[in-house]
Amino acid sequence: MFEARLGQATILKKILDAIKDLLNEATFDCSDSGIQLQAMDNSHVSLVSLTLRSDGFDKFRCDRNLSMGMNLGSMAKILKCANNEDNVTMKAQDNADTVTIMFESANQEKVSDYEMKLMNLDQEHLGIPETDFSCVVRMPAMEFARICRDLAQFSESVVICCTKEGVKFSASGDVGTANIKLAQTGSVDKEEEAVIIEMQEPVTLTFACRYLNAFTKATPLSTQVQLSMCADVPLVVEYAIKDLGHIRYYLAPKIED
């Protein structure tokens, strides 16, 4: 028996919004430690890794490890039926081929349930090597989203250059060149507005705007985003999900021919 309950459906809606542009379907691996999802996009350029800890749920029970393959378009249709403040419960029997998603209004006067067919997905689990990153940048998630959106107008690619002074995002195309520099913040009143750079070595990497913009769909989940970079390895873009877990995106760099 698997049962996981969250106080607010809005969190699940935001999580789905953060992954459904990259993935059409995905397997949710449930165990007593929580829910994990790991999947590459169709072109094998990016990977989504979602971790939701069992202790972040209002109620969590998972008697046997369970892999639930879900069509994310179908799940989005179901979540559209929930009000943001509704409680949401996901339930499945062991070895079931369906999952039930139930919404309850705060006053318990409206209860709706949706049974969704599960899919048998040919999933490959990937081992992600531990990396000693040269640069780790923490910055406001909204600012990162704004920069990715703005620079996508000028080029398909963005160059991220990180030094101890700051981080520079550049795009160059037919229109010309765009550069956005963010300096490390001195002192800030609000932690969520800070730009913090931990640098071992300066690093310059090029990435496809299209994927960065897809990652920023996670912005409503978190006030800050963390970018971890190292020469010639995938970028890691991480959004914390308060008291519940995190979503990490991995993006392979572009290299000179």
Binding site: S43, H44, V45, L126, G127, A252, K254, I255, E256, D257
Partner: peptide
């Protein structure tokens, strides 16, 4: 010109 690298080369199949 730049080429998009695939992720497969960085990660190992488990």
């Amino acid at each position: 010109a730049q080429t998009q690298v695939r992720l497969d080369s960085f990660f190992t199949a488990l």
